[in-house]
Each structure stands twice: as structure tokens, then as C-alpha cells.
Design a protein around this nucleic acid. Structure first.
Length: 557
RNA sequence: UGGGGUGUGGUGCAAUGGUAGCACGUCGGCCUUUGGAGCCGAAAGUAGAGGUUCGACUCCUCUCGCCCCAGCCA
């Protein structure tokens, strides 16, 4: 690494290299459990681990911590792979599984027994809890703690052979039942689970606990720096103990604070609930904070990487405002998204003095931020659609757009003036009658006349019909988990988080947009073509544009 | 009341004994054929009390706040 380290972890690693630790080698890993989809919090870990490997010319592994057959599924394995790849983290041929190490782990367990450092315990789960003591009182030793090595070996082998029912026995490390760190009070290494594992099938009926598997898995892979989140800080002494007893390669564990975001939840358990109870349409519902959802919504890996860089890495538990993520997103999309004209909530406009059958084409800029993207033609005719909220019959003084008697510019086309409003019985505007000024062709007034607003439009006869899905935050509160005693966090779900518009009108150049394509609908926001698209396209709103008018209105309310 | 962590503007991060700075957000203004983008400006902070020092966000002592740990989850 050439420049100064960007965070305290890189600082530690840079120093390790200087001191010659691990021979100057750097090897990291991302160790997910395949029991759900990855979320943006995982993205922080992935990008951190992969980024470090890159910065220090080291290696990066993907390893599934698949030690709990009851919660894990192949679907999740596949989804995780897709997401890590999409984020740009390359594990090359180093895709590993803790389950590949089950035999080695087992052999090490026998080794610890032989050294008198592990024993088979017949206590029930409840009894183990009772014997463990509490935060401020020491635990008591299990009555099975002093079985002979031979008996322990025999029992463990019979556990493996399937002689005992689920939960009837465990293998435990023999450490210290009075240790102030509860993790050191004879932690469970193996539990009996007659369950089918998504990879090992029926081969095993005893499964290693995470604590017994994790450190050794890192060791086996030659990981130098085991980066993990804060809650594992007081497991570190246990991992150190296992590694030291076994006398094997000893990675250095470094803990950092996980990412939290306002207006969302970041827990696989809670996300699973949202999916299972139908509060969202699935793990990749664009309202979810999962990587799959962000991708479907139109986020870019670049935006996520930029965001992670801004957020930094520390040990301070914090909650980042979602606005920062949106800023990274807009900044990236602004540079790359092609601009298009689309009317989401159409209001019909007839240009009364425009020739009935005339059609003109106007040159429209694809992206003012990137001239290399060129221009395209947009057709114009007598009957158009404009955005319903670009018109107000009785506008307040700070409303610049169209109103009776007022003139605005139709982007790239002409100045038009509203001369009449056709209304239904309830007084809703059905259609606007406008006149245009032929001299303003292209949008410039030769007489130097100014308009306060430029609005977008789509020619009615050329418009493509589309569905547009508008997303709001999934929760109404910055901290969705902040609920009064006895109430559910689910009461904070935003009932308006999804609004589906069926009647949207798009300019014709959007006819061949493909799923995943991202565009900016001018003045409305960034949108991404959803895979649900058929002959009729479906667009997801990725994020809206900053809108000072909307903000003004919000303040007034 | 045990053990492990952690406190810098509203939010996220810097400053590693030497002028507390950056970004997001907020509020003004400029500009504008996107009320976008861009540009300019403003408000706003070291949890508290002592101590060491010419000088403390930084070192020491005490106090306070917050987070994690009593799964055969990870």
C-alpha cells in the first residue's frame, strides 16, 4: 500500500507487514452463513476484506460458515455468490466451506480430548445454562467434567456414529467455569443434530458450533487477519485458546463496528420475517436493504463502494443516515444515466394552434454530464402529456410551472401558454388547452422573453405505456426498532412504501430498454427497468432527484 | 453488581502533544432549456471534573453515558 492507511485495520496490517508478521503475507476472507440474503451491512464487510486484500496485494477467500444444517440452504449459497460477485469482490478459485473441514475439526476434537481439554457432557441444554452461572456469579462444573480420556473418546465416537438422540450429549472444552468471560465457561464444541446438511447430506449427525469451527477454518485457509464485527470481541480469547492448544496457524482477529442505516433494519432474522410474512415481495424486493434488492432497484456497485469509503471503518457503533447512501447513488447515476422524458402521472395537453397532423422531432441531449453519449430525437405533436403536478389552477407565488395564462417551456420544444382548462364534474383538470409560440422552436425566445420553468412532456401518439413503481422508505421511523414496550417494530412499516403507477407515458426511445437498464427520467429521478417487464415495461424508481420544490412544500405542511 | 468495548457539530469520519478539518444533512445565495447538476457562503462539535504540559481531542485519575456477552445460533 502506497498511501497512508485509510482506517485503523489497514493501519494494523501495514504495521504487521513492517514487523514481518506472517512473512508480510495478507489473506482475508468473507465468511457468510448461508441462512439468508446478504444485506448492505455485509457489503461493508465484503468490500473491507476484499479491499484490504487488494491494497496489500494479498488474497481474499469466500467461505461459507455452514455449521448449522437447520437454517442453511443452497438457495442462499447461490444468492450470496451472485451478490459478492456483483459487488466486485473476486475470490477467484477460493470458494470454501466450513463443512469441508468437518473431518479435520473432528480429528482436532479428539486431539483435545486426548490432551484432557475436552469432555463429553450429558447435561441437557437447560442444565448447561443453569450450570453456566450468571454475568456476576461463577458457574459450576458439570458432573461429567472429569470423565476419563478413554470414556470421552468412546462417547464422542459413538456420538458421531449416531448412537445418541439430538441434544442428549455435547462435547465441551474444559476451560474454566469461573471465568469472568462466559465464553470460556466450558463452551460447547459439538452438538448432536440428526439433520440433513445442504452439502454433507446425512454424513454427519454431530455438528461443530460456530465457536469451534470459525477460528480453525480461518487457520486452515491460512487467513492472516480475521476481520469480524464487534460482538465477537469477547469470543477472541476462546478462539485464541483453541488455536494455541492445537498449535496451528494463528490468524489475528480484528473487530469493527457493523453498518447501521436509518429507516431500515439490518438483521437477517428480521428481514426473513418481512419476507415470510409478506410485508415485501421477496428477498429482492427493491425496498429491502439486501444487495439483491439494491441491484434490482438500480443501485450500482460503484455507488455502494463510494458510500462505504465515506462511511469509514471504526469500532464506534453508529447509525449512518440513509441520505449519505442516496448521495453516493445520485452522484454516480448523475454521471452515467441517460436522460429520458417520461410522464408518470399524465395530464393531456392540446396545443390548439399547432397543425393537426404535424409531427416534429427535436434533438435531445442524452446526458449533459457526458457529451460523448450524444443526442437523440424526440417526436412532438399537437397532443401531449405533461405531469399532472406541473400544473396548478391556483398556484402559490413560489410555483413556477404551468397555470392558466402562464407560459412555460416544453423541454427542447416550444414555449406554451395555458389558455383553458377542461374539467370534470368534480372540478379535476381533464385536459389543458395551450397555445405555442412557433418563434420559440427549440426552446429559445428570440425576443429574449424568459420563462420561469421548463417542464417535460411526451407526445401522446408516440408514447409508450409503462408501469412505474415508486418506492419510499420501508419504515416510517429512523430507527424502526424503536417501539414502546409491548408493541411490534412492524407497526413502523410504512404503508405507502410502494406506489404502483400503471398509466405512465414514456418517450419512444425507451422502447428497447432492457431489464437492468438505468435511466434518469428528467426532473423525476433515476429509474431502472425491472425484470418483471413484459411487452409493457416496468420501471423501478431507484432514487428521486433532489427536489427543492417538494422540500418547500414539505416545510409548509 | 462480572467481563469486553466505545464517547469529536444533527449524522458519518479525520486530526496519532502544536491553528479542531472533511463529507452528508440543514439554512442562505448564484447559475440554470432538469426547481437536476454545478458554484459560493453560513450555523453547528471534543460527555463531565480534576491533573501533567509552554501547549491536551490526543497522556494520567476519577465520574457519567451508550453497546455487547448468561444459544447445543452465527
Amino acid at each position: 500500500m502506497n498511501e497512508a492507511p485509510k482506517d485503523f485495520i489497514r493501519e494494523i496490517i501495514a504495521n504487521d507487514i513492517k514487523m514481518g508478521k506472517y512473512g508480510g503475507r495478507v489473506h482475508t476472507r468473507f465468511p457468510p452463513e448461508p441462512n439468508g440474503y446478504l444485506h448492505i451491512g455485509h457489503a461493508k464487510s465484503i468490500l473491507l476484506n476484499y479491499g484490504i486484500a487488494q491494497d496489500f496485494k494479498g488474497k481474499f477467500n469466500l467461505r461459507y460458515d455452514d455449521t448449522n444444517p437447520e437454517k442453511e440452504e443452497q438457495e442462499y449459497v447461490d444468492a450470496i455468490k451472485r451478490d459478492v460477485q456483483w459487488l466486485g469482490a473476486a475470490w477467484e478459485d477460493r470458494e470454501f466451506y466450513a463443512s469441508d473441514y468437518f473431518e479435520q475439526l473432528y480429528q482436532w476434537a479428539e486431539e483435545l480430548i486426548k490432551k484432557g481439554q475436552a469432555y463429553v457432557c450429558d447435561l441437557s441444554a437447560e442444565e448447561v445454562t443453569a450450570y453456566r452461572g450468571t454475568l456476576q456469579t461463577p458457574g459450576r462444573e458439570s458432573p461429567y467434567r472429569h470423565r476419563s480420556i478413554e470414556e470421552n473418546l468412546d462417547l464422542l465416537r459413538r456420538m458421531r456414529a449416531g448412537e445418541f438422540p439430538d441434544g442428549s450429549k455435547t462435547l465441551r472444552a474444559k476451560i474454566d467455569m469461573a471465568h469472568p468471560n462466559l465464553n470460556m465457561r466450558d463452551p460447547v464444541m459439538y452438538r448432536i443434530r440428526h439433520a440433513t446438511h445442504h452439502r454433507t447430506g446425512e454424513r454427519w449427525c454431530i455438528y461443530p458450533s460456530y465457536d469451534w469451527a470459525h477460528g480453525q477454518s480461518d487457520s486452515i485457509e491460512g487467513i492472516t487477519h480475521s476481520i469480524c464485527t464487534l460482538e465477537f470481541e469477547d469470543h477472541r480469547p476462546l478462539y485464541d485458546w483453541f488455536l494455541d492448544q492445537l498449535g496451528i496457524h494463528h490468524p489475528q482477529q480484528i473487530e469493527f463496528a457493523r453498518l447501521n442505516l436509518t429507516y431500515t433494519v439490518m438483521s437477517k432474522r428480521l428481514l426473513l420475517q418481512l419476507v415470510q410474512e409478506g410485508h415485501v415481495r421477496g428477498w429482492d424486493d427493491p425496498r429491502m436493504p439486501t444487495i439483491a434488492a439494491l441491484r434490482r432497484r438500480g443501485y450500482t456497485p460503484e455507488a455502494i463502494r463510494d458510500f462505504m469509503q465515506r462511511v469509514g471503518v471504526t469500532k464506534v457503533e453508529s447509525i449512518v443516515e440513509i441520505e449519505m447512501l442516496e448521495h453516493s447513488l445520485r452522484q454516480d447515476l448523475n454521471k452515467r444515466a441517460l436522460r429520458r422524458l417520461a410522464v408518470l402521472d399524465p395530464l393531456r395537453v392540446v396545443i390548439t394552434n399547432y397543425p393537426d397532423d404535424q409531427i416534429e422531432e427535436f434533438e435531445a441531449i442524452n446526458n449533459p454530464e457526458d457529451p460523448s453519449t450524444g443526442t437523440r430525437k424526440v417526436p412532438f405533436s399537437k397532443v401531449l402529456y405533461i405531469e399532472r403536478d406541473d400544473f396548478m389552477e391556483n398556484p402559490p407565488k413560489d410555483f413556477y410551472r404551468l397555470a392558466p395564462g402562464r407560459e412555460v417551456r416544453l423541454r427542447y420544444a416550444y414555449f406554451v401558454k395555458c389558455v383553458d382548462v377542461v374539467k370534470d364534474a368534480q372540478g379535476n383538470a381533464l385536459e389543458l388547452r395551450c397555445t405555442y409560440d412557433p418563434a420559440t422552436r427549440g426552446g429559445d425566445a428570440p425576443d429574449g422573453r424568459k420563462v420561469k420553468a421548463t417542464i417535460h412532456w411526451v407526445s401522446a401518439q408516440h408514447a409508450i405505456e409503462a408501469e412505474v413503481r415508486l418506492y419510499e422508505r420501508l419504515f416510517t421511523k429512523p430507527d424502526p426498532l424503536d417501539v414502546p414496550e409491548g408493541r411490534s417494530w412492524k407497526e413502523n412499516i410504512n404503508p405507502n412504501s410502494l406506489i404502483v403507477l400503471q398509466n405512465c407515458k414514456l418517450e419512444p426511445s425507451l422502447a428497447d430498454a432492457q431489464a437492468g437498464d438505468r435511466v434518469q427520467f428528467e426532473r423525476k429521478g433515476y429509474f431502472c427497468v425491472d425484470p418483471d417487464s413484459t411487452a409493457k415495461k416496468v420501471f423501478n424508481r431507484t432514487v428521486d432527484l433532489k427536489d427543492t420544490w417538494a422540500k418547500l412544500q414539505r416545510k409548509q405542511n
